[in-house]
């Protein structure tokens, strides 16, 4: 499992600063929830962790090693794409819109990474994929295409797909925001089980119940900064800052 450290991370989109110096650490084996209003920069921050977004300055260390960049003299320079791809293969990511590969069955989605990237023999990959699908409660759906699955089922396949690469770290970008309310629970249950297994997780979420119950640390973001962070019972139940109070009073 990998520790994640954000060191003075800045990011601007064509002049607009969306991350204004993020300093934050997620210990190995911890679950961190990023909460905050839309546009606060939490999804952008998450996407910087596997370099789907570049940063303007500052750095992110995963397992003590810089990601996306390398030292070049006294500056940072973007790393080789090959290195970035290699690091990404150890970081699982789950998206709000599932993004399952539409032309592949659930099983094929989960087998694809191990077979093509890790060169695992097909039979072994298939056995492992079936095991993972069973773990997320979809043993009966292996042959289904994403279009034949409900949102909750698709998201659970997406989690199995991310786990198939045996990641050290899992990133969740609003994994339940696109789901019908009655399907949210099944996805959160899978995530809770994952947390119990000791997976390091960073979760961007609006599910305060999940954050309070599962997270080891919660960070409230607004306007590109972390306003306050700490124990979820403290941050969610007893927020110190006005902005946190105002936000929580609306969502709770």
């Amino acid at each position: 499992m990998s520790e994640v450290q954000f060191l003075n991370v800045h990011k601007d989109f064509s002049g607009v600063e969306v991350l204004k110096g993020i300093n934050f650490t997620v210990q190995a084996g911890q679950v961190a929830c990023l909460i905050g209003p839309s546009g606060s920069g939490k999804s952008t921050l998450l996407r910087c962790v596997n370099h789907l977004e570049t940063t303007s300055s500052g750095t992110i260390l995963v397992g003590g090693r810089m990601i996306g960049y390398e030292v070049h003299g006294d500056r940072l320079i973007e790393a080789h794409q090959k290195d970035i791809n290699k690091r990404r293969s150890r970081i699982g990511m789950v998206f709000q819109s599932f993004n399952l590969f539409g032309h592949m069955t659930a099983l094929e989605n989960v087998m694809m990474g191990p077979v093509k990237l890790l060169k695992v023999p097909k039979a072994q990959a298939e056995a492992e994929a079936k095991e993972l699908l069973a773990k997320v409660g979809l043993a009966e759906r292996t042959g289904h295409y994403p279009a034949q699955l409900s949102g909750g089922q698709q998201q659970r396949v997406a989690i199995a797909r991310a786990l198939s690469m045996k990641p050290d770290l899992m990133l969740f970008d609003e994994p339940t925001s696109a789901l019908d309310p009655e399907l949210v629970g099944e996805v959160l249950d899978v995530m809770k089980a994952l947390a119990r297994d000791g997976m390091t997780m960073i979760v961007v979420t609006h599910e305060m119940g999940f954050a309070r119950e599962v997270a080891d640390v919660v960070a409230f973001m607004d306007g590109g900064v972390i306003v306050e962070a700490g124990d979820p019972r403290e941050v969610i139940s007893n927020p110190q800052h006005e902005r946190t109070k105002a936000f929580l009073s609306k969502v709770l």
Binding site: N50, K82, N85, K86, R87, K116
Partner: peptide, 23 residues
């Protein structure tokens, strides 16, 4: 093809060419 498809593939560690080919 929706951009999310490429993004998911990149996040798994596939290169641009592999993403084109497989996804």
């Amino acid at each position: 093809v929706p951009a999310g498809q490429s993004e998911a593939s990149h996040a798994m560690g596939f290169s641009r060419m592999e993403t084109l080919r497989y996804v």
